[in-house]
């Protein structure tokens, strides 16, 4: 290397690596910018307009009118309430059942490998197929649910399942739990496998009951995994759309219209892209807020023994 070199040579190794690293990241950043950030910003701009779907260029600015209209809309608040109900019941049940099943697999009962593998199947089924499946199961005249309950003697005649708003919502939730539970089990089971056996064994020697071992050792150590499952599933459940579209189309009497479904109706069925965008934005804000609350509540820097 000669003395009379180009200025670039004056960069130290770290700076050089930084610069090359930037070049390598650039394509990725560009792609994220194009497929994520631009649409998000575009939606944000649209949310302040009365843009129709038939001509989706931002036009007819109305300021905060779309957002203010939601505050007054009964339909909007009902949808928000239904979405919270769906999310809390669905994610809550998945977490409790997921923990139970993961613990069961962890205790290595006979056939646990088969159990672990077959658990994946519902998760591998696409949501749309899952919805169609449950629509058939719930059918009042030729569905499997009526058939099962009849043969068990629990009902004396076929019942119409999807004709009462609250029941319909709970049945959609069951279909969603069936589909998403494997994901929670997988995460928790993987986390359980990393807990050293010695810790629970030592506690047992010291006289801790199974209950104490579960609550004082297993749960605290599982906390990061529970947090991950909780955040991912809450965000997913809050945006639920496809399973409802297939099973109930939002019926009966809007009883299963969640906020995402309402957004779909607003934007694509009614063609109000502006207010639809405002609704999508509110959904994003809600999910972001929930993720932040979770992290605040549960996330603690790892305590080293």
């Amino acid at each position: 290397m000669t003395q009379a070199s180009i200025p670039r040579k004056t960069l130290n190794l770290r700076q050089q690596e930084m610069r090359d690293g930037m070049w390598m990241l650039l394509p990725g950043i560009l792609i994220i910018f194009i497929i994520t950030l631009i649409p998000v910003l575009y939606t944000f701009v649209l949310s302040f307009t009365n843009t129709p779907l038939s001509n989706p260029r931002p036009q007819d600015f109305v300021g905060l009118a779309n957002y203010l209209a939601f505050l007054k809309s009964q339909q909007f608040w009902q949808a928000i309430w239904r979405t919270f109900y769906f999310t809390v019941v669905s994610v809550g049940a998945e977490l409790v059942l997921g923990l139970a099943i993961a613990s069961l697999i962890h205790s290595r009962p006979p056939g646990w490998k088969f159990l672990r593998t077959s658990l994946i199947i519902p998760w591998a089924v696409p949501t749309i197929v899952n919805g169609a499946l449950w629509r058939w199961i719930y059918n009042a005249d030729y569905g499997a649910l009526n058939g099962l309950l009849m043969s068990l003697g629990l009902i004396t005649k076929y019942r119409a399942w999807l004709t009462e708003p609250a029941t319909a919502m709970n049945l959609v939730i069951i279909a969603d739990i069936w589909h998403s539970l494997p994901f929670v089990v997988l995460i928790l089971q993987a986390a359980l496998a990393t807990i050293p056996v010695e810790m629970e064994a030592a506690a047992a020697v010291d006289g801790a009951t199974a209950w104490q071992r579960f609550w004082l050792i297993r749960i605290p150590l599982l906390q990061p995994a529970i947090l991950v499952a909780l955040i991912i599933r809450t965000v997913e459940a809050f945006r639920v759309f496809d399973i409802i579209y297939v099973i109930t189309q939002g019926g009966p009497a809007f009883g299963t219209v969640t906020i995402s479904y309402l957004t779909y109706l607003e934007s694509f069925s009614y063609g109000h892209l502006g207010s639809g965008s405002a609704m999508s934005f509110l959904i994003s804000l809600f999910t972001l807020a929930m993720a932040l609350i979770y992290i605040r509540l549960f996330y603690r820097p790892e305590v080293r023994a």
Partner: peptide
Amino acid sequence: SNPASVSYVEEDVRNVFSQGK
């Protein structure tokens, strides 16, 4: 009227009728 009608569209009606129900 079949109470499940509240959750049915045309294809469901066809299935129920075609089964003799």
